[in-house]
Design a protein around this nucleic acid. Structure first.
Lengths: 213, 213
DNA sequence: AAGTCAAATGACAGTAACTCTCAAAAGATG
DNA sequence: CATCTTTTGAGAGTTACTGTCATTTGACTT
């Protein structure tokens, strides 16, 4: 399943430290993964997502179709996979235990988004655009939220003594995630001007204000 | 696109008034539609959603596969189609114009859910269960919310003087819908005891309280 | 440097959800 | 009853996947 989707930058950067740490095998895997993604994004841009068969992506990336499916279980995952969830989880752990629960969640989310949005690449922008415009991606992206939701629910549960599947806990969690989603979508709607974090703060404020308009 | 999914009862009832009003043609269409749905639900129950090919549904419903796709553009739609959105829209219109915007939305949503949940059928329960358990359905169901979201956004925009694509408006809207989703899911999680509306009220209260736990 | 082992790859066959087209069947209408 | 329109079914084609298996290719040992 895809992690929270709208989020990650899908590292275009020249592979920060391919470091001598990893064997040739691992390095090749990373390159292949990247090759597939790059080819895919290029073709999506040229012809659109739906009009681009996986076979064509495979050909462009110089691998067999089987390999594409080995790296990305579904075509959607080429766009949607990211590493936001682990990041979120660790940020949540780092928050002081005596902080009000909602504050902890809020800070972790903002921090996570800042981190992930830091390396602002054109590929990242295209990614969000695709998610906004392609129904299949939109749908799966929402599903991806479920992972993040679980993490936040558990954190809230731990800090409040409630259960993670408690209705109130779940409502808080999904409301916060929905706010993030809308903040990002508004940001792209408005041409990705300014700081996306500003939108996020505004969105979260609405929630803390009790939905006052 | 599917309307808001979790909601509707998928009329099992013996077709309230097939009235002499409609011609034979229309009556047959309704019957066919129902036959497909009934067959599908039965097979889904017996073998599971993924394990049931559309061809088999067609055979069981005594129509051709082409016909199934004519009635339901996707397999998911067999489970997800409903008529919640028009209902919601009209309920929203009936609300007094001087009512606080959030109150209007809240009442309309509660009212709509009551109406739709009134005819509580076993098919309805299975429906929610399927949406909860089958990833593909969960994903599309979330997407279906987009339709309801548009309606609520427009209502809020009209009552507040803001634009419908205003960030604050969108956050309020998605938060409210998320609350409804969670309320229903919690209800099924807890074995569908008691009144689902109670859960909805609790969920909405959390939001109006500013996410206080 | 050669030899062995495990992992990655590619080729291939199969399934199932659609899509499109067209001719036959069946209500609606005068 | 004759004609016109809508609905249906049949069939062919596309594409996203899934599973299998033989081949290749790093990794590790001696």
């Amino acid at each position: 399943m895809p992690d929270n989707a709208v989020m990650t930058p899908a590292r275009t950067s020249p592979a920060a430290q391919p470091g001598p740490r990893l064997g040739l095998r691992e390095r090749k895997k990373i390159k292949t993964r990247q090759a597939i993604r790059t080819a895919a994004y290029r073709l999506f841009e040229e012809q659109g997502y739906d009009a681009t068969p996986v076979d064509q992506i495979a050909h462009a990336a110089d691998v067999s179709p089987s390999t594409v499916f080995r790296y990305f279980p579904t075509k959607e995952d080429i766009v949607l996979t990211d590493e936001y969830d682990p990041l979120l989880e660790s940020l949540l752990h780092e928050r002081p235990a005596d902080e009000p629960p909602l504050t902890a969640v809020r800070q972790a989310i903002v921090e996570g988004l800042r981190h992930v949005l830091g390396e602002d690449s054109p590929e990242m922008r295209m990614r969000i655009r695709l998610i906004r415009d392609v129904p299949a991606l939109r749908a799966r992206s929402g599903e991806g939220m479920a992972g993040s939701a679980g993490i936040i629910c558990r954190a809230l549960a731990g800090r409040t003594g409630r259960r993670a599947d408690d209705l109130e806990v779940r409502v808080v969690t999904t409301a916060v995630l929905a706010a993030m989603q809308e903040a990002l979508m508004t940001w792209v709607d408005e041409g990705q001007h300014g700081d996306p974090l500003t939108y996020l703060e505004r969105a979260l404020d609405v929630l803390e204000r009790g939905l006052t308009l």
